[in-house]
């Protein structure tokens, strides 16, 4: 009996009968269709056009920012800092979970209201759960002499813009 069983299984392994063949074709095509559907769903679900504000903002004349000042633009979600070394722009969006931080003038630091992260005005984390410092953003002066900030481009810290 053991021999018979073994024999039957070898033939089943060796040659494909019609039923198994069609079952495999059916399941295979279903699998291909499922992968295609997943790809299609992914494409459909990611919008191609976003009605979001432009990442480039115009902050006006550099002279409007006094030396040793931190100015927040809440609409753009950035800080413009003017130190003796020069200008730089800092993202105001907390690197932890995206809350908007606020500049605390008395303590001289940036604080996040959500989970208590604290940063210096150069973006370095002092305390709290934030995993990264606040990123520095690309800043330049336009042809009209306005300060421009690109919120979508991070630069390495301590690259001051001197005017």
């Amino acid at each position: 009996m053991a021999d018979e069983k073994q024999h039957a299984s070898t033939t089943a392994k060796g040659e494909l009968n019609r039923r198994a063949f069609f079952a495999k074709i059916g399941l295979g095509s279903l699998g291909i269709a499922a992968v295609g559907t997943a790809g299609f769903a992914y494409q459909f679900l990611s919008p191609n056009v976003l009605y979001e504000p432009s990442p480039i903002v115009n902050l006006g004349k550099p002279e409007d920012f006094a030396v040793d000042s931190v100015t927040m633009d809440p609409n753009a979600g950035i800080y413009l800092v003017h130190t003796s070394e020069g200008y730089f722009a800092l993202s105001a969006v907390c690197t932890h979970l995206g809350c908007l931080t606020a500049w605390n003038q008395e303590l001289g630091m940036i604080k996040c209201p959500c989970h208590g992260s604290e940063f210096t005005r150069t973006g370095v984390k002092i305390e709290g759960p934030a995993p990264k410092p606040l990123p520095w953003l690309r800043t330049w002066v336009s042809d009209e002499g306005d300060l421009m900030v690109d919120r979508s481009t991070d630069i390495h810290p301590l690259q001051y813009l001197r005017i």
């Binding site: 809440p74 609409n75 979600g77 932890h96 979970l97 809350c99 908007l100 931080t101 606020a102 209201p113 959500c114 989970h115 208590g116 709290g128 759960p129 995993p131």
Partner: peptide
């Protein structure tokens, strides 16, 4: 979007998680 209330709290049943988020990086908590 230009003003985060302080404190910004989730619904109460997620506050345990938010408390953990205060201590650990997001990937952990």
């Amino acid at each position: 979007p230009t003003h985060t209330p302080n404190p910004a709290k989730a619904p109460w049943y997620f506050l345990g998680l938010q408390e953990l988020l205060h201590y650990f990086p997001p990937v952990v908590a």
